[in-house]
Design a protein around this nucleic acid. Sequence first.
RNA 1: CGGGGCGUAGCGCAGCCCGGUAGCGCGCCUGCUUUGGGAGCAGGAUGUCGGAGGUUCAAAUCCUCUCGCCCCGACCA
Length: 566
Amino acid sequence: MKTSQLLIPTLREDPGEAETVSHRLMLRAGLIRKVAAGIYTYLPLGLRVIRKVEQIVREEMNRAGAQELLMPVASPAELWKETGRWDYYGKELLRFKDRHERDFCLGPTHEEVITDLFRREVKSYRQLPMNFYQIQTKFRDEIRPRFGLMRGREFIMKDAYSFDCDEAGAKVSYQKMYDAYTRIFTRCGLTFRAVEADTGLIGGDVSHEFMVLADTGEATVVYADKGTYAANLERAELRPSSDTDAGPLRPLAPVATPQRRTVEEVTAFLKIAPRQLVKTLLYTADKDTVAILLRGDHDVNEVKLARLLGVNEVQLATPEKVQELTGAPLGFAGPVGLKGRILADHAVKGMKNFVVGANKADTHYVDANLDRDFSVERFADLRNAQAGDPSPRGDGALVVAKGIEVGQVFLLGTKYSQKMTATILDDQGKDRLAIMGCYGIGIGRTAAAAIEQNHDEKGIIWPFPIAPFHVHLLPVSHSEKTAEAAANIYSTLLAAGFETLWDDRDERAGVKFNDADLIGAPFQVVVGDKGLADGVVEVKHRKTGEKARVRPADLLAHLRTLAPAG
RNA sequence: CGGGGCGUAGCGCAGCCCGGUAGCGCGCCUGCUUUGGGAGCAGGAUGUCGGAGGUUCAAAUCCUCUCGCCCCGACCA
């Protein structure tokens, strides 16, 4: 392609609206333009990247035995009411009425639509397993869209749905997708990890998220430094520790802590370490309030707490509620003399002579002790993992990292097939609920994640398989000789299968070099009178910055040594 | 939804506090010169100052309402 035939509106300056690297570079390199919050147009260059990612996904899904179809963007409320998600999904589901006043929504995901198709069309276990996928635009009316394609409201997603007649088959289907995802993100040139994950609104039993490791990621993951355990922070399990503080129990004593409310303030004032304090958090779950005890340097994990209590969500009690229950303002709650349920994190169990709030303004207790001064209903895993915590699988210590979630796989079980009565006949001629799995990949997010992981101060450094062009051809002199050489090289590259962007603009060399670095094709081929006088052109490897002078006749061979196979 | 901020030329911004009829850089157009890391000179075009209402002789500037966008939080793939 010639540059003059494509709209590639590169920006010299950073757009004010963009914060993250990928968002900034996608705008500057002319890949996308915003239409409304979280809604973008893919410009020619951006679309080429999207198509590359889609093609890799398509090939690997097909290889894994999935079949492609395409479902509608709009779906009728009836299907969503069958599963109850018309009510549960909340405002993220964009709803509207058609001219007959019938309720519709824009699909944020397609379990309902595919399950409806399946129950109508598939009758026998002999037809299973089946796995349907599509690559389609989704709409989720995000509370806060941000970071360009990273979290849009409208976004392109590959979603797949597997149907099996038994658990064992469903696990095989799940594993196939897990393996396909591993191949996909590897082919895209990404550094990623699959982590155990919570299932959230989609529901189900088992789930893994595929996380591209990047500091700008919105998700926090932990993984074992000497093994394979890896999990989303909200999911990461922690085993009870056998650590026990040494020494005799000292008598409980109140101490004045004027205006010291937070762990930092209290421990600094008493000149102790945060791990010698037990903090008391009051949570409301449905109508009940429970007190949660945690070691001072630990953070509560609300997902674990909600699961333990068997509720959908928990909320920190309001300051008024805290006052009512403890008789003290916020910051002085403690377990001694506190009425109601008291749950504690495992880490509290081995502690001795610790500091707690006294349920009295400006007062704490020192040398509080379990059982002697108060009792705990139950010890459980209630906190977030921290760097250095032992892995629950015993394979070393946990490392904490930031990640971008580019894909997630779920073993759904019968959640949807039950609600929508999607049954098949088994080999006994009996009706059985289909066992389902669902599998998503954010296409645009994957492209954005690739930029987060592959860039420098000059611009994008595309991994070869998803680059919009393989070679950026840059004629830098205005002579006939250079023009002719560039034209020859262009047709040679094309014939050899190198997708080439030919910068035929009447621009100065510096402008072309800078745009080429910004756009980030893996290779730049510079043609100019200077080199041609010596019978050579220059090849610059964008990633390493290495430049080589090669004869035009040797150009293809040279590029082939640098380009990855395939 | 809570907190903070911003809407002025295609992009990045100044002007606003202290009202007097809009400016800078880049980009864009024309010409000449230049031409291997974002050229120089000369000339030129471009604005409902987000929108509506109000105050005033006079509003980008002050007041009210409204819309959009960005950031932090809660929420979520």
